[in-house]
Amino acid sequence: MLICLKNVTRVYKVGVERIHALAGINLEVEPNEYVAVMGASGSGKSTLMNILGCLDRCSGGTYELNGRDTTRLSSGGLAHVRNTQIGFVFQSFELLPRLNALKNVELPLIYAGGTTWLARRTRAKEKLERVGLAGRIRHRPNQLSGGEKQRVAIARALSNNPSILLADEPTGNLDSHTSRDIMMLFDELHRQGQTIVMVTHEEDVARHAERILHMRDGKIISDEHTGDRRLTPEDMEVDDA
């Protein structure tokens, strides 16, 4: 079992009011699954994402990642988990503007430590090649298109060979054509064995996953396995039309 959530709750205090963003989530994810989390805004899907990514702690329940309980870890311990087990892809890319593509991808490797300058560089180049940006490693974010920026972000997320790739609306800031390319990249990564958990509100995007969770009011209301029905590019053409 890669991810195991048991009765996870997350309560925010806003003034005197208590908001139950997650109200008892039970979830298990196996290695190499491709999961999409859907739901309206305020349904708790972002909170779930933050918990899965060890950016946030649950108020109750337990979260085991790779068989290790994360609920008792210090903030330094959580940082280590994020560094070694999790790769984030954000809607707005979150690249550091003053660093070129290569340096951005190297960032998690620097915080991991224990690698030489050359090893970091080689690894970062390899990841950039994998997302198809071999020719643009010296470019800064402002010299790259939206799709290219997201590819750099994906390369960065992959740099430490994470157990899970967490994507939060990865196509939210992209046009449909670029979105399709990015989704094909995700499909490709999944085929190579990468576990992916993705938050989206677009049906088209969710349809790439093998398993779709629907959330409402902090609960998972449906969990459907759609099987291995990755769309071919030809299908996408039809969809767009």
Binding site: G76, A79, R82, E94, L96, P108, Y111, N160
Partner: peptide, 11 residues
């Protein structure tokens, strides 16, 4: 925030 997300410890 981003640095922390990719694993920078508070230190």
């Amino acid at each position: 925030g981003l640095r922390k997300a990719v694993g920078a410890k508070p230190s």
